[in-house]
Nucleic acid binder design. Structure first.
Lengths: 155, 155
DNA sequence: TATTGTTATACTCTATAACTATA
DNA sequence: TATAGTTATAGAGTATAACAATA
């Protein structure tokens, strides 16, 4: 093993130099995203919802009776990848698929009596975890962070 | 088909209501991350580097001759998942693995004569794309965005 | 015994082509 | 022909267990 004073020869015990990626907004965005991800937390995991599942439930709560097409667009997932998400939620009895009468190609989605309260609780938990994970920001900082992020991706 | 004036009954042609996720910093972080991802851009794709590949090269350029263990920690990837990244870079002749003489368990990584200029060009391209993708931010906004993001994930 | 690195494997997310049933 | 939804499949990222070589 190397002596502690011998740090000029190599970096066995020193910090790594910052590389170029640390100058990119995108890099810090990804790290912050990971730090704020609620799905790795046990309190959120207790709902047994994957990110896509939660996105569907939350969208349906705010937008009752929308078609699968619009849900797919709304949560940014392709139609083929939405199908297994809906299968899972339907088999858990959290959502219902209903064939539209006016156009029998479309299926309309809605939260069930079990799905609605579970969605509410999951949303409350996600909001609480986010609030804890961003406790170092005051209200103004939080609003400004969101405003700057939106400026980057909107349109 | 529905008449255009009949929008009160459903939302076939209306915007979706914002759901709860739009109130979360984490949601906007993910969207901004996606918007800033350089790897989906043709100019970056031309290097045929995956995100992990690029992270390794960039780290090695800033930190010559570090062990695989430290690279894995530095780019936030597990040791088993680092192996195929290094195999790929090594077989392309971009990096070299060298057995340490003092401890024959460790392998020291370095950029080759081909790896260094490719890394430089890839970094230049990534920086240029980021700069274009964040053109709507002025210098002060950019610095503040990074500062706020770091505040969220540091420590 | 502990550590470095490897192999094997599995799970999730994402992307695409081909299919069905309706329009 | 075009659209809504499904199935099948493959790619890439990530996680864990078990192993070999070395300390």
């Amino acid at each position: 093993m190397k002596a502690k004073f011998d740090l000029s020869e190599d970096q066995n015990e020193a910090e790594l130099n910052q590389n170029m990626m640390a100058s990119l907004v995108g890099y810090h965005c990804r790290r912050a995203s990971a730090a704020l991800d609620p799905f790795s937390h046990p309190r959120m995991a207790a709902f047994h919802l994957r990110p896509g599942d939660f996105a569907v439930l939350s969208l349906l709560r705010a937008n009752p009776d929308v078609s699968q097409k619009r849900v797919a667009e709304g949560i940014g997932v392709s139609a083929p990848n939405l199908a297994p998400i809906l299968d899972r939620l339907e088999s858990r009895g959290l959502i219902a698929r209903e064939r539209s009468l006016s156009d029998k190609r479309v299926q309309t989605l809605s939260l069930t009596v079990d799905g609605l309260p579970l969605c509410r609780e999951a949303e409350k938990t996600a909001a609480a975890l986010e609030s804890e994970a961003t406790a170092m920001l005051n209200g103004a900082e939080r609003r400004q962070l969101i405003a700057l992020l939106q400026k980057v991706y909107v349109k």
